[in-house]
Amino acid sequence: MTLRMPEPVFAALGVAVALLVIATVGASVSSRIRRPLRDAEVRLRIRMWWYIVGGFFMALVFDRRLSVVALGLVSFVAFKEFLTLAPTRRADSKVLLWAYLAIPVQYFWAGSGVYGMFSVFIPVYVFLLLPMRMVLIGETHGFLRAVGVIHWGLMTTVFCVSHLAFMLALPDLPGLKNSGVSLLFYLVVLTQLNDTAHYLVNRRFGRHAVLATVRPGLSVEGMLAGTGLTMLAAVALAPWFTPFTWLQAITAGLMIGVFGFIGFVATTAVERDLGVSESRHFLPGHGGLLERLDSLMFTAPLFFHFVYDQFY
């Protein structure tokens, strides 16, 4: 019997579990020293990472369809959170049920790999059908605002997020076992790294403020260095998790760096508009999930299409 190296994505998940165990133990030990609010946030973040790692294992060890369903539930909760925070018209309750119905349908296309319907169902069919259902109610006051709110919610929390599920359904590429899971892992890790890199550089080296009206603390330095770090990480990780050449890896890193940031600031702008205060952020139902998904909602479709156009 020969010893076989585990696939990189398995090894990486093993490392992630080890880190999470340390983090979980650390958080419970230090929970008495820290401020309770911050502490609750840290615990919620750790718990979210357990879910993410669990989702990857589910896809690798059991069945991808389970992970597709799990991502569908993520969309359900995120859309629900969005509608809780956003203004909706009482008259539209039936319309909202139809909008919710789009979630299982979209994830059915994603899980079964029906590319055509997957990519046009929400942007075209749902986009055109919801106003029809809405006009049947006969209430014109606030119509445009209501239809816009629902469509923004569906596009970001359902359509964009469902690209993560479609990626799982991608067939294997030559030389890369479990291609879909590996590519998804690469995307999620880089997007999270990008958030962290932006945050750390802003805090330590931020001088020239940018977009201060959206969120104080953002800086040109953070934007450039954060994106640069993400590009470096993209090149470093590419050989293990992707079929990319170094040029493709740089492009992917640039895309994730820039659009992760755009997703972050755009979601922040939406939250400000809806009056979501920062102290409520980490609570599920009060913006907690949208806050976690913000950058991923923007990077997922772009990274997916980059991969899809280059390799499939």
């Binding site: 629900k80 509608l83 309750s93 919710y100």
Partner: peptide, 20 residues
Amino acid sequence: RGLGKSMGKGTFIPIPFFVD
């Protein structure tokens, strides 16, 4: 808070909204 938004008087299917 939120239950009247989810299923107010006159409606019979609860619409998903977070409740406080």
